[in-house]
Design a protein around this nucleic acid. Sequence first.
DNA 1: TCCCTTAGGTTCGGATCGCAAACCCACCTC
DNA 2: GAGGTGGGTTTGCGATCCGAACCTAAGGGA
Lengths: 157, 157
Amino acid sequence: MSNSDETARRAPVPLAQCGAALALDIVPDRWSWLILRQLMYSVGRFADIQADIGIPKSVLAARLSALVEHGVAERRPYRDGTARTRHAYVLTRKGRDLVPVVLALMHWGDAHLKGGQSALALTDRDTGAPVRVALTTDDAALELRRLSYRPIWNEDG
Amino acid sequence: MSNSDETARRAPVPLAQCGAALALDIVPDRWSWLILRQLMYSVGRFADIQADIGIPKSVLAARLSALVEHGVAERRPYRDGTARTRHAYVLTRKGRDLVPVVLALMHWGDAHLKGGQSALALTDRDTGAPVRVALTTDDAALELRRLSYRPIWNEDG
DNA sequence: TCCCTTAGGTTCGGATCGCAAACCCACCTC
DNA sequence: GAGGTGGGTTTGCGATCCGAACCTAAGGGA
């Protein structure tokens, strides 16, 4: 990003009006992002999230209730066959709209920390074309519901 | 994101191979993201970053050296006219590639926490068309250097 | 009926981290 | 050589995070 390439003394937008700064009050730390990642993959049960990312229970409980509080996720009762009622956390619309941010972060990590080796292929559900999160014009943007993903198997797993 | 809309028990990609998880080791907290925001805007001097986002000096020093350590930013001596040599932190290529992530986060915050009121207009430097960070096919993605921004003035600033 | 199991948390010290304020020092100007 | 300024480091304390232990409500079985 460059308007003039010189050193600026102040950001053009004050922090209090910056969407990114406000967003960081809702997803402030590593654990929150990792929880979002799990919810993105529809891993919504408390114990499953915990097992997958190794978060302490007390922290998970606190983060999940904050995400619910902020309207990013909701706690939904659900039944799997004959078993008793269970609960799963699922993303709301607001939460689903955060998915591109997670994918952008993943793309960066794959490109710069894994030598370009992605572990997940993203495609357009309708056309099968590969997609990613990038700078684009409005008319070339795909709706989230057209996104499909498939894990890529590689040897060091 | 949905492949099947049922509840999954595990993420399709283990954490150790997830680019997002690796990225979160480099940008783990709120302050790191806010510092990146400043660097994105070319606000690179220690005291300026500190004044703009209100971060404690000790934390800023620690975060900046971590970002340099990870190759996201570099410390560059620079001269402004007759004054003594100063230092500014500037994004490396690796760091510039994180800009879309910050913009995606900003977009989400503007849309969901500010009622759609953006404080920054992003345009294609070549065509003037409005741009944003979104899901798209590779061929419709714009290179970062084509990005231009302009702050939007609004009444509650 | 009473007990056992499991999901989904809550509570509790101890270790770590963040914060503000004080201090430091090299460089530059007067 | 006295003072100012940029760019930090140190210090002490309060807030968070952590792992382990504990708790509770809902089924199921004897």
